[in-house]
Simulated assay, not measured.
Amino acid sequence: MAQRKATVAAEVGLHARPAATFVQTAQKSPIDITVAKLGGDPVNAKSILSVMGLDVRQGEMIVINADGEGAEEILDALAVIAETP
């Protein structure tokens, strides 16, 4: 299982547009992807309600996990989204 840590840079955190972009990108991959606050329980990264339910705010770190072919590439893309202001 591949993993990335990223610090959320968007002023609104991982909510609204950043969350939608994050989820839409995750949905493009056929593999299982989870996201969690650092030290928290992981949720399905392909579910907008689950991602927004994490209540990730600007400056908080998230952990993204993916398992399967193409995991490294999708994790890189999701980390870039999370770290984009």
Rank of each mutant, 00 (worst) to 15 (best):
A6W: 01
A82T: 07
V80W: 11
I64T: 10
A26C: 06
V8M: 03
T25E: 13
E72G: 12
A71L: 06
Q24K: 10
G59I: 03
H15R: 12
V43D: 08
A79W: 05
A19C: 05
G59T: 01
D55F: 12
I74F: 13
L54G: 09
I31F: 05
L78T: 08
T7S: 08
V80A: 15
V8W: 01
D76F: 07
R4D: 01
K46C: 04
L75C: 06
G13Q: 04
V23W: 00
M52P: 12
A26V: 00
E72D: 15
P18C: 13
I74N: 04
A10L: 04
N44T: 02
L14N: 04
Q58S: 14
T7R: 13
R4F: 07
A71D: 12
D41P: 01
K5L: 12
V56C: 08
F22Y: 00
I48M: 09
Q3C: 09
E83Y: 06
Q3A: 10
G59D: 09
T34D: 02
T21Q: 15
E69R: 11
K37D: 06
T25W: 07
E11A: 14
N65L: 10
E72K: 14
L49H: 03
Q3I: 11
S29H: 10
A79E: 08
F22P: 02
V56F: 04
G39M: 07
S47M: 03
V56G: 12
E69Q: 14
L75E: 02
A79L: 04
I62V: 14
I31R: 14
L78F: 10
M1G: 13
L78D: 06
V43F: 05
Q24R: 10
A77Y: 05
M52T: 14
T34L: 05
K37V: 02
A9V: 04
S47I: 08
A16N: 03
E60A: 00
D41V: 12
K46P: 06
K37A: 03
R57Q: 15
I33P: 01
I48V: 10
I64N: 10
Q27W: 05
Q58N: 09
G68W: 11
G13L: 05
I62K: 00
T84D: 14
T7N: 06
A66P: 02
D76K: 14
N44L: 13
E11P: 07
F22C: 06
L14D: 13
V35M: 02
P85C: 05
V23G: 01
L75P: 03
I33K: 09
I81R: 01
T25P: 09
K28Y: 04
I31S: 05
L75K: 09
A77R: 11
A26M: 06
D41E: 15
